[in-house]
Design a protein around this nucleic acid. Sequence first.
DNA 1: TGTCAACATTTGAGTTAGTCAAACATTATT
DNA 2: AATAATGTTTGACTAACTCAAATGTTGACA
Lengths: 140, 140
Amino acid sequence: MAQDDSRANSHNLAALVVRTGERVKADFAQAVLAHDVSPPLARAILLLNEPAQMGCLASQLSCDQSYVTRLADDLVKRGLVTRAPGDDRRVQVLTLTPAGALLKDQLAEAVSVESAVSSALSPHEQEQLRSLLTRILEIS
Amino acid sequence: MAQDDSRANSHNLAALVVRTGERVKADFAQAVLAHDVSPPLARAILLLNEPAQMGCLASQLSCDQSYVTRLADDLVKRGLVTRAPGDDRRVQVLTLTPAGALLKDQLAEAVSVESAVSSALSPHEQEQLRSLLTRILEIS
DNA sequence: TGTCAACATTTGAGTTAGTCAAACATTATT
DNA sequence: AATAATGTTTGACTAACTCAAATGTTGACA
């Protein structure tokens, strides 16, 4: 109802969760854009610790497979990954080139350096937070 | 790696924060779309407890003023708000119509009902979470 | 009082981060 | 051998924005 204002606005905990997520995302974006990489591209690169097929990447990114195709196009064009058919010739396996691996390390460094989460909270508090968030994600 | 910890490397706390934010946002979207309102429109409606001028709404939504113009166009077209010049005739004041006010209450109800945050955590835990997130937002 | 800077809103054009459906190639099933 | 299933690609589209320039309005001040 209208007078139940405690939930309506940004004093609302749900809104705070969203806002914090957006803040962390913005920090990530700032860190990776400094390396001329868009956030989705950076996410893909950071997942390529070992060669992976595109469908797998899609599920890790929780996005459509066709979007991974576009990301891969871009990565290949930039010389950051190679795209080669696997044993099953339907699949394409993405592998970081040396340049890509280097960039991945730089991105990982940049992202972790400017992490508001780890600089705001003690290790114990970080564990607390992790546990609370996990509980939220677990429901349903 | 078949783990469906969907937002990659959820062992990374920052990723977990983002993922939780997205989950909460998705719940919000689901709740309001059931009332045929897009998430940004719903956010605007929920902020209109009292008449507000557009620039003010923009800052509450943290978006460009020109985007509020488009939201307002839509809201007016649907008969949910009126847009009238204020005393200062540069400003336009948005006011919920009766239909808009009714919808606002329905949205507030729908959004609060399906809140993962409040059903996953005890009141005390919610306070803990609020405090941790606030600390993250405060750093900058 | 006239002029000019500042402000609120609007418009037009563009961007980013995707989605969906259909097509295609390859492999698996019957 | 025919058909179904799987993985990727393409084309067309969308949502949710942003930016820059244009428009209308007001306040400041010489």
